[in-house]
């Protein structure tokens, strides 16, 4: 009988004998992976949404007066002095009025009494895609506000700030749930292996006396940890996929969620999560063995 066949028989026997605690550990690992992967999935999707929204981000600089061609050139130079930009549009008072009329559609009558030049002229600045951080946008906005003849700058500050705060909060939650994953997998697996070792102390002692090598004794425990990590993380990710699919189906109709394209993890990310879980569980198993296996 070769080494691995013997080891697998040992693992099978261990799992049969200690299946309640093994099952509990498996569920805990699955749940931890599920919690972490859930928040991570939300986070990555929020980043995608952020990217998409960033594509439409533009800063509107309201001006005191409509600039002439020379001033337009001066302002353009000043703006590009700060950073390269994707586009700069000068909106005249009339253009602004026309746009507003278009936006009001059937309610355009409300503007009947208003003169065509009651709206201020403005500059629409589309920043480069590399300029995506909130602080960078803020800096740019402050710079634009200081340009001569500027009344104010708008870019949906409140909304952008809330979005970035939410993303920052999510990144903290992802970090916390990542720590939870590490703690639960390592400690739960270590605890289960410890219980198994304690329960099999007599057998392990006997195995040593009849000539079992250290590898013969240790490998099954390592393999148990590895299996816990592999099965637990796969189960957790599978549950998350089913949940994701269900949510997607539930909200597939018209609504806010349908505006964005929610995606599941790519294969590489899923495999990385499984790989890290396997590693953590094996580490848990190994530490327990080092501590409690007296061979």
């Amino acid at each position: 009988m070769n080494f691995w066949l013997t080891v697998f028989r040992q693992v099978g026997r261990n799992l049969r004998q200690t299946w309640p605690s093994q099952l509990m550990t498996l569920l805990t690992v699955s749940l931890s992976v599920l919690i972490f992967a859930f928040f991570y999935l939300v986070y990555t999707n929020m980043l995608n949404i952020g990217d998409k929204l960033g594509d439409d981000l533009r800063l509107i600089v309201y001006l005191e007066e409509q600039p002439g061609p020379e001033m337009q050139e001066q302002l353009r130079r000043k703006i590009t002095n700060f950073d390269e930009v994707e586009e700069i549009h000068f909106i005249s008072k009339e253009e602004a009025y026309d746009r507003f009329i278009k936006q009001l559609a059937q309610n355009k009558d409300v503007l009947d009494e208003m003169p065509r030049d009651f709206l201020p002229a403005s500059i629409e600045v589309v920043p480069l895609k590399t300029l995506r951080g909130l602080s960078q946008i803020k800096l740019f906005s402050d710079y634009l506000a200081k340009l001569p003849g500027t009344i104010k700058v708008q870019y949906g500050q409140e909304w952008v700030e809330r979005f970035y705060s939410f993303t920052r909060l999510l990144s903290i939650v992802v970090l916390l749930s990542g720590n939870l994953l590490i703690l639960t997998t390592v400690f739960m697996v270590a605890y289960t292996i410890r219980l198994t070792i304690m329960g099999r102390q007599a057998e392990l002692e006997l195995l040593k006396l009849v000539g079992a090598t250290n590898n013969y004794i240790r490998t099954p425990f390592l393999l148990e940890g590895l299996l816990q990590g592999m099965l637990g993380s796969t189960l957790g990710l599978l549950s998350l996929y089913l949940l994701f699919d269900w949510i997607k189906m539930q909200f597939s109709g018209p609504g806010l969620l349908s505006l964005f394209d929610f995606t599941f993890f790519p294969y590489t990310a899923s495999l990385t999560i499984i790989g890290v879980s396997i590693l953590l569980c094996t580490v848990g198993s190994y530490t327990s063995m080092q501590k409690f296996l007296r061979i």
Binding site: A202, E205, K208, L209, V210, G211, T213
Partner: peptide, 22 residues
């Protein structure tokens, strides 16, 4: 020690007074 001792023990059969049965 280690594997050498394990291999040696495989060549020694011991019937213990306290049996050491599982």
């Amino acid at each position: 020690k280690g594997t050498t001792l394990a291999r040696m023990r495989q060549r020694i059969g011991v019937a213990y007074q306290d049996f050491k049965l599982l």
